[in-house]
Write a protein that binds this DNA or RNA. Structure first.
Lengths: 210, 210
DNA sequence: CGTTCAGTTGAACGATGTCAAGGAGGGTGG
DNA sequence: CCACCCTCCTTGACATCGTTCAACTGAACG
């Protein structure tokens, strides 16, 4: 429904492996919308985003989708508590992924723990957004997060669609769109393109998102 | 506002320390409503629940509260990505906590990683509940979770108030109450006491909580 | 036996979802 | 290079669910 199954191509690469002790791996290329792993599949390796963006999500039986996290260049994902994936992961757009096959995760736990903890904190903070913030606060928090992850520039590039944003923030696509319009009308942001946003009033955005 | 600052009493104890390599610690007693740690405090030790129950939460400036997790006997909490607590932790009712002071967290990462990953999965699954489920589904998911954590018995003891449940599920206390009534009227549950529930139709509850 | 606090219930409101139509941008083929 | 198409996005009207505000109930405790 959301994923396309397309064989991915391995690219030669020269960039360094970040995890010591792991098997060095080339970068795999995933076209937009392709599946990286699926719920129920056997887990094991970790995944490092070289370029592009990834969405990690779960589905309810009736098709409702919750994106639990977006992963951008430099980030590592794919952690599981047992040997099975509990989520789906897909490339949002053309994405390069380094698959890190780890001989024994336990042996590398020293390096892995900080990454897992970062993911934990992120997820718990997102719980506050989903549980207690209204639509405009959610979008503001999202935009603040995206700007921070892009180095705090005034201009933000959103790699994902409105649908993805909605499924991440627990909103419908229509509500996301209306909030964008409201922020635009208030002069808080300016839409340079559909997926390119300029922050005009960072302070306002900051204390909207809490 | 939510926490009372009451000095806690150390209890002698004979039960085993679960984490090898950590300093053995006695069990501290926290009366109902007392703070275990606060947001902004220096983090470091981990906490193991011996008996009782704990809520971990964040607050918004205007007092809105999101409980990110409940911790029951046997569970470990207090993980942080950096040296600072990003959340508050309080005893829900009379609770025994073993404070595990770890010389170097990195040295114990082999044991810690599985615990952190379990917390991560739990948080991510809760995101689905908060982002995409309606009131009755949220309460159903909560009840299923509580029964599973109490060994799958038909009778569930809820250590927390309706307010806590609401703040965990992103609902108001009134909505939680109304959903309980609806489940009771449907014959899915029976209220033995305010905080004691009998599950009459586990199957119905299960596929409500999806 | 009264007081208090947690929980329940009701009525009205409001935010967000749903359904439907219209618009804009990007890609493709003529 | 233009026209068309398809997808994504926006906007509007209305429905719905959950919140808010308020009153009431009941259990626990002195």
């Amino acid at each position: 429904m959301y994923a396309q199954q397309i064989a991915n191509i391995e690219l030669p690469t020269q960039s360094a492996v970040h995890l010591d002790g792991a098997l060095a791996q080339p970068v795999s290329f995933f076209p937009a919308g392709t599946e990286i792993y699926a719920q129920g599949e056997k887990a094991g390796p970790l995944y490092q985003v070289e370029f592009g963006a990834v969405r990690v999500y779960r589905l309810l039986a009736d098709g409702r989708r919750q994106i639990s996290a977006f992963h951008m260049a430099g980030e590592t994902f794919g952690f599981e508590a047992d040997a099975t994936h509990h989520f789906f992961a897909e490339a949002i757009n053309a994405t390069g992924i380094r698959v890190v096959r780890i001989a024994a995760v336990a042996d590398m736990s020293r390096q892995l723990l900080p990454l897992a903890l970062k993911g934990l904190i992120r997820a718990q903070e997102h719980l506050l957004v989903l549980g207690r913030q209204n639509a405009i606060e959610r979008v503001a928090a999202f935009l603040v997060d995206m700007t921070e992850r892009q180095g705090g520039l005034r201009q933000v590039e959103l790699p994902m669609s409105r649908l993805d944003i909605g499924d991440y923030l627990g909103l419908t696509i229509e509500t996301v769109s209306r909030v964008f319009t409201r922020l635009k009308d208030k002069g808080v942001i300016r839409l340079l393109g559909l997926r390119s946003i300029e922050i005009l009033k960072q302070d306002v955005l900051l204390d909207m998102g809490e």
